[in-house]
Design a protein around this nucleic acid. Structure first.
Length: 757
RNA sequence: GCCCGGGUGGCGGAAUGGCAGACGCUGAGGACUUAAAAUCCUCCGGGGAUUUUUCCUCAUGUGGGUUCGACUCCCACCCCGGGCACCA
C-alpha cells in the first residue's frame, strides 16, 4: 500500500543522504525465472534461487542499488552477543557465519615490471632493507604508476616468509596490464579469457580443480625482498579480501595443491610447538626440528596449525600469535602493510526488476544527474496498469507515463528510476509501523515505538535466519542512527518453529505434497488439526504429517465431547464469566472420589499452566489433559459419589485448558456446560495448590541405587518411618540381608536410597 | 574442512540428577453387533527364571568419568540432520 511504501521511500532517501544507499555496477545474481536480481542472502544451496529451488542463478553485470549493510558488519556481529539466550544458538551461529569476520593484515607487494621467466629465487633474502627497486627499468606503455603495488590479504602474516607466489583472481583489474608486454602475452591472454569464462559459471567453485598460469611478472616480498612470481589462479575470489593472495604452500591446503600442480616451492616456516612431554623424551623429534631451522626446507605435507615460526628472519622462534602481532605492527611501521579486519558480508542489493515492490524514488536528469525525489513528492506511486512482458526488463520501464517526468531541480525532461525495492525492505521494519499505523507525517511516532520495543517475543521459521532477521537488525541500527529509536536490536527473544513435512520434505505446492487445510477441516474440523500439530512434536521441531495420528486427536476430542454432553446438562449451576473452583461445598465434606478428581484436575492445571508459560511444550500439556480425561472416564459413573458441583468444576477446567488449542470446540463445550457468555470472557484459572497436593505418596526404595521396592506413606513422612517400612518390604530386605548399611539418602515424598556393603 | 543441532520401543515423542518409555499412533487379542463402523476392555523394548503371582537381568549411538544414584553433568569417539565454504 502506498501509505506504507511511502515510508520505504522516505527511509531510502535518508539512507541516500547518508551514503548508506548507493548505486554501482557489479556482478550480481540473476534468477531467470524471477527475471530479477537477487541479494546474496537470497541465493541458497550453492547457487539456487531461494524461491525457485530448481533454478540456478546466473551472474550478470548490472548497475543497481545497494544498501551498505557492510558498514554495520562489526555491530551486527558484536550485538549478537546481546541476543544470546534470547535467540536460538543456531540462528546466532548462522548469522555469525554469514557475516564472516576475519582478522588479519593487508600487505603490499611491489611489482617488479622487469621480471620475466627467471624462476623462483631467494636472492637477497635478508630482510626488508634489502628490497631493491627496479623502477623504470622497462616501463610499459600506458602504465601510470611504475611502482605498482599488489595488495593481498592474509590471516597468517606469520607465514609470509614461506610465500612462493602471489596469486590474483582472474578478474583482478591488474592482470591484463601485468601480462601486457611479456613474451607469451597472446597465450596468456587466451588462458585468462578462458578462465574468466569458466568462473562466470557459478558451477561448483568449491570442487573445481586448481587452475592458473604465470603472468611473467614478479613482485617483491617486503619482508625479505624475495622475488616471487605473480600468478593468476581460479581459486582466488575477486569479491573477497583484495582479490589477491600470497601463496604459502607449506601452510595452506589450497596453496599446497596449487603449488603441487605447478611446481612452486613449499617452504617450511612454521613448525608444531613442542608439548612439554615431547620436550622431555623425544630427542629424535628435536633433531628434526633443528634441521628444519637450518636453511629452506621443502614441506612434504601441509601444516596449517599455529606453532612456532622458523626460517622467518628475526621472527624465527616466535609463537604464531606473537609473530602475527609483531609482523603486522612492523609492516605498518615500515609502510608496506597494515592490520585489517574483513567481512564476508556483502552489501545488500535491493534493486529488483519487478512490478511488485516499492519504486526507488530517484530521477535521472541529463543536466543534474541523479536527483532524489523530494520528500513532498512522496510516495512515488506504482503505475496502475503495468505491462508484464516477462522479458527481464523492469515492468515500470515500459510505462512512459511513469518513466517520463520533469527534473525536480531544473524542471527539464528527466527519467525515473524503474527498479523497485526488494520486498525484504518492507519486512525489515513493518513491526514498527504496527505501533503507529495511521501516521502520515512520519514512519511512526518514536515515543510510541519506545513504549513497545524491542519485541519481547518473535516467532518465525528458520528460513529467515539470515534474510529477514539480518535485514531487520540492520534496519534497526540505521533507524537508531537516524535518531528514530533508542535501541540497537529489534527483537529480544526469537523462537524458530519447525516445519510440517510430508515424505521428509517441506510441504510445497511445486512438490505437490501439501495437505489441504480445507479438506482436513471438512473431515475433522480445524480444531482437530490444531490439536494434532501441537501434540505431535514440540513446536521447535519439524513434524512429519501422519494421517493415523490425526485420527488420534480426533478420537480424543470426541471423548471429551461425549463427556461434556453427558454431564454438562446441569444448567443453572454455571457461574457466568468464571470457573467456580473448589465448588461451593466445604472441603471437609468431599468424598474420596471427589477429592481424587479435583486433585487430578488441579494438578493437571498446575502442569499445563507451567508448560504454557515457561516452555511452550504444548505436546506434553495435551498429554496431561488426555490423562485427566482418562481419569474422569475411569471414575465413571460420575453420578455415583460425585456431586454436580464437583463434576462441573472438573469439566469446566478441562474445557478451559483445551481452549487455547481448540477454541471452537471449547466454546461449544462451554455453552453445553450452561454458560451464555462466551468462553473468551473467562480468564485463565489459578490452580488450587492445596487441592492439587497428594495426601498419600509412593516412595521409591533403592538399595545401592537400584530400585528394589516402593512404600506408600502419608505425604511428608520422615526418613526414619520410611526406612522402617522399607526394611519390612520383602524385596528390599532380601537385598539388605547380610549387609551393613553404609549410608541412607532420603528425598521426602520421593525416594529412599539405602547404600549397603 | 569449519560452525550449530540431534541420536530414547515398530512410529511421533515423555522424563533435565531420583521408578526410562508418560501421552498418542500402529499392531495383537477380546467385548458389544446379524454384520460393519463407532465405542469399550486387555496386552505390546530385549533376554532369563517362575509359569497361579512375581522376580532377576540387559537396555536411552559407542567407550570412559563424576555421583549413593546419570537419558540428564564432564571427556573422547561414531552416526544423522542443518548452515557456511577454494573466505586466504
Amino acid at each position: 500500500e502506498p501509505e506504507y511504501y511511502k515510508w520505504n521511500q522516505w527511509f531510502f532517501l535518508r539512507m541516500l543522504e547518508r551514503g548508506i544507499a548507493y548505486k554501482k555496477k557489479s556482478r550480481v545474481n540473476w534468477c531467470p525465472k524471477c527475471c530479477t536480481v537477487l541479494a546474496n542472502e537470497q541465493v541458497v544451496n550453492g547457487g539456487y534461487c531461494w524461491r525457485h529451488e530448481d533454478t540456478k542463478v546466473e551472474a550478470r553485470d548490472i548497475e543497481q542499488w545497494f544498501l551498505k549493510i557492510t558498514e554495520y558488519a562489526e555491530q551486527l556481529l558484536d550485538d549478537l552477543k546481546t541476543l544470546e539466550g534470547g535467540w536460538p544458538d543456531r540462528v546466532i551461529a548462522m548469522q555469525r557465519n554469514w557475516i564472516g569476520k576475519s582478522v588479519g593484515a593487508k600487505v603490499w607487494f611491489e611489482v617488479e615490471w622487469t621480471g620475466e621467466e627467471r624462476g623462483f629465487t631467494t636472492e637477497g633474502a635478508e630482510g626488508p632493507q634489502s628490497l631493491q627497486r627496479k623502477d623504470g627499468e622497462r616501463a610499459q606503455p600506458g602504465m601510470a604508476a611504475l611502482r605498482e603495488k599488489i595488495e593481498i590479504f592474509t590471516t597468517r602474516i606469520d607465514t609470509i616468509y614461506g610465500a612462493s607466489a602471489l596469486v590474483l583472481a582472474p578478474n583482478h583489474p591488474l592482470v591484463t596490464r601485468l601480462i601486457a608486454g611479456t613474451a607469451e602475452q597472446a597465450a596468456r591472454e587466451a588462458k585468462l579469457a578462458e578462465m574468466r569464462r569458466s568462473s562466470a559459471k557459478t558451477e561448483d567453485i568449491a570442487t573445481a580443480e586448481k587452475d592458473g598460469f604465470f603472468t611473467g611478472r614478479y613482485a617483491l616480498n617486503p619482508f625479505n625482498g624475495v622475488r616471487v612470481p605473480i600468478w593468476v589462479g581460479n581459486f582466488v575470489l575477486l569479491e573477497y579480501g583484495t582479490g589477491a593472495i600470497m601463496a604459502v604452500p607449506g601452510h595452506d591446503e589450497r596453496d599446497f595443491e596449487f603449488a603441487t600442480k605447478f611446481g612452486l616451492p613449499k617452504l617450511v616456516v612454521v613448525r608444531a610447538a613442542e608439548s612439554k612431554e615431547k620436550r622431555k623424551d623425544n630427542a629424535e623429534a628435536r633433531s628434526l626440528q633443528r634441521s628444519a631451522e637450518v636453511g629452506v626446507q621443502e614441506a612434504e605435507e601441509v601444516f596449517t596449525e599455529y606453532g612456532v615460526s622458523v626460517n622467518s628472519g628475526k621472527y624465527s622462534g616466535l609463537e604464531s600469535a606473537a609473530a602475527i602481532e609483531l609482523m603486522a605492527a612492523d609492516a605498518e611501521a615500515a609502510g608496506y602493510g597494515k592490520k585489517e579486519i574483513i567481512f564476508r558480508l556483502r552489501d545488500w542489493g535491493i534493486s529488483r526488476q519487478r512490478y511488485w515492490g516499492t519504486p526507488i524514488p530517484v530521477i535521472y536528469c541529463a543536466k543534474d544527474g541523479m536527483v532524489p525525489v523530494p520528500d513532498k513528492d512522496l510516495p512515488v506511486l506504482l503505475p496502475a496498469n503495468p505491462k508484464l512482458t516477462g522479458e527481464g526488463e523492469s515492468p515500470l520501464a515500459t510505462d512512459p507515463e511513469f518513466v517520463n517526468v520533469k527534473c525536480p531541480k531544473c524542471g527539464g525532461d528527466a527519467r525515473r528510476e524503474t527498479d523497485t525495492m526488494d520486498t525484504f525492505v518492507d519486512s525489515s521494519w513493518y513491526f514498527y509501523r504496527y505501533c503507529d499505523p495511521r501516521n502520515d507525517r512520519a514512519p511512526y511516532d518514536p515515543g510510541k515505538v519506545k513504549y513497545w520495543f524491542p519485541i519481547d517475543q518473535y516467532i518465525g521459521g528458520i528460513t529467515h535466519a539470515i534474510l529477514h532477521l539480518l535485514y531487520s537488525r540492520f534496519w534497526c541500527k540505521v533507524m537508531r542512527d537516524l535518531g528514530l529509536v533508542t535501541h540497537s536490536e529489534p527483537i529480544a527473544r526469537l523462537f524458530t518453529q519447525g516445519m510440517v513435512l510430508k515424505g521428509g520434505l517441506a510441504m510445497s505446492k511445486s512438490k505437490g505434497n501439501v495437505v489441504g487445510a480445507i479438506d482436513m477441516a471438512e473431515k475433522y474440523g480445524a480444531d482437530t488439526g490444531r490439536l494434532y500439530t501441537l501434540f505431535a512434536a514440540p513446536p521447535e521441531k519439524d513434524l512429519e504429517w501422519s494421517e493415523e495420528s490425526i485420527e488420534g486427536a480426533w478420537r480424543f476430542l470426541n471423548r471429551v465431547y461425549r463427556l461434556v454432553e453427558k454431564h454438562g446438562s446441569e444448567r443453572g449451576l454455571a457461574t457466568e464469566g468464571r470457573v467456580e473452583t473448589q465448588s461451593s461445598l466445604g472441603r471437609g465434606e468431599l468424598t474420596e472420589k471427589e477429592k481424587g478428581l479435583l486433585r487430578k484436575a488441579h494438578e493437571t492445571l498446575r502442569r499445563v499452566t507451567q508448560d504454557f508459560e515457561t516452555r511452550w511444550h504444548f505436546n506434553s500439556a495435551i498429554a496431561q489433559i488426555m490423562e485427566l480425561t482418562n481419569a474422569i472416564y475411569a471414575a465413571e459413573p460420575l453420578e455415583e459419589g460425585v456431586r454436580p458441583e464437583v463434576r462441573r468444576e472438573v469439566l469446566e477446567l478441562l474445557t478451559l485448558m483445551l481452549a487455547p488449542m481448540t477454541p471452537h470446540l471449547s466454546e461449544e463445550l462451554w455453552e453445553m456446560l450452561g454458560h451464555t457468555k462466551g468462553l473468551w470472557t473467562v480468564s485463565w484459572p489459578a490452580f488450587d495448590a492445596e487441592l492439587a497436593k497428594e495426601e498419600e505418596v509412593e516412595v521409591v526404595v533403592q538399595v545401592s541405587g537400584r530400585v528394589r521396592g516402593k512404600v506408600k506413606v502419608a505425604a511428608g513422612t520422615g526418613q526414619d518411618e520410611v526406612l522402617k517400612l522399607a526394611q519390612a518390604e520383602a524385596g528390599v530386605a532380601g537385598h539388605l540381608a547380610g549387609k551393613r548399611i553404609v549410608k541412607v539418602i532420603f528425598v521426602r515424598d520421593k525416594l529412599l536410597n539405602v547404600v549397603a556393603a
